[in-house]
Nucleic acid binder design. Structure first.
Lengths: 216, 216
DNA sequence: CAAAATTATGAGAGTAGCTTCCACTTAGAA
DNA sequence: TTCTAAGTGGAAGCTACTCTCATAATTTTG
């Protein structure tokens, strides 16, 4: 039911052991790296799949096997499982949203700094290029369902209960709000914005005072 | 900055007066109607743009002039201005979310029943076909910004304030939750689900009780 | 009412990404 | 070493989509 997932195995979860798996991960990384370089230098749409294949020293058919669509070159990563694990590890007495907020930061802390940089660059491209942004937004639906499942699990409720889904939805909405402000001014700290957005959900009554820009 | 919008004039807002405008609206409707029929009969991807053009009795180039992409055949409508107008017409003393809830139903009431049916069918297709869903989700961003502007206007705040954007984001999240439940079981009333989802936002503390499935 | 200006339409060729097919090579296991 | 399975490469086809220019219709103007 959820949207398309990358057929080839994800890069992180099961650390590659065999020689084959290692080469595969290597090829994937090389392709993605070269693609990002070309996008940076020549622009996304001006870069053809053939150019990327050539730069990464593989054939177009191989490229297509690793990244079924051009957008996947930007979108593919998989930090969601990391976040899920961090969330499950939160103490049960914490309110759901607080637990989520903590999980976000713990998960982020596990990602090497250089990978964070790259993820941010991909996030930016993923927002500015319409086709990619569309796919990225689509992935938000998957994330929303993942969140609903996690929340339901924690709350002893069904994942398809309206209230649970709404809660997950609001979190997604907060993420979007933070992301958008970051895109508008990338000198701001995305994670700080994210934290503040979640804080709005936590203490917010959902509604604001009409005129006064102050609410603590 | 917002995603691509349909270049040709929208069908609703300024009621077509001249002969030219009327013919244009007619052609647009014919194309979209034929496209939906073909999609229903043969499936989305199995239907080519040429077939649609032929069925609507126009040339492919004309088809592209009306609907720049295949997805637009499903996505194009413009009820957002209707909603905006309805929201602006709400009494100022109503809390923001309540005003929005009322606006949704007032706007919906203005849409002829048959058009509602068609909109629902398009919404369904727009969710089940991955490429289209991606574009639909992308449009959610535009809607989120529209909402932020409307809310900011009503609250005497800046539209790019985090709290305002978060509020708009949560509304989007609630809409998504309702839509998803409706997709899972289309015999349910989408607007009722939507209402309940918004209600969750209004009275919800944002967080739920852990074990008890009851909260009134 | 007729001519001019504006705008919609049609036809065609061209681009490029995605997708598929088949033959080949290479890595890992018995 | 031999068998098996998987990754790889080359080429071709399909189709969404773009661009240009000539033609036809509609509106406006004289």
């Amino acid at each position: 039911m959820p949207p398309t997932d990358p057929p080839p195995a994800a890069p992180t979860a099961p650390a590659p052991v065999g020689l084959r798996e290692r080469k595969k991960a290597q090829t994937r990384a090389a392709i993605q790296h070269q693609a990002m370089r070309l996008f940076r230098e020549s622009g996304y749409s001006a870069t053809t799949m053939e150019q990327i294949a050539a730069a990464a020293d593989v054939s177009p058919s191989t490229l297509y096997r690793y990244f079924p669509t051009k957008e996947d070159l930007i979108l593919q990563d998989d930090y969601d499982p990391l976040l899920a694990a961090a969330f499950r590890a939160q103490p049960r007495n914490l309110p759901t949203l607080e637990a989520f907020r903590a999980a976000v930061f713990q998960a982020m802390a596990q990602i090497p700094h250089e990978d964070q940089e790259e993820a941010l660059e991909r996030a930016y491209l993923g927002y500015t290029i319409p086709e990619v942004r569309a796919r990225a937004m689509d992935h938000m639906l998957v994330t929303a369902n993942t969140l609903a499942t996690l929340f339901a699990e924690r709350l002893n409720r069904a994942p398809d209960e309206l209230e649970v889904k709404v809660l997950a939805g609001t979190v997604i909405g907060a993420l979007l709000a933070a992301q958008e402000l970051w895109i508008a001014d990338r000198s701001r700290n995305l994670f700080l914005l994210l934290d503040r957005a979640l804080q709005c959900l936590i203490n917010g009554p959902g509604d604001l005072a009409p005129a006064d820009p102050q609410e603590a």
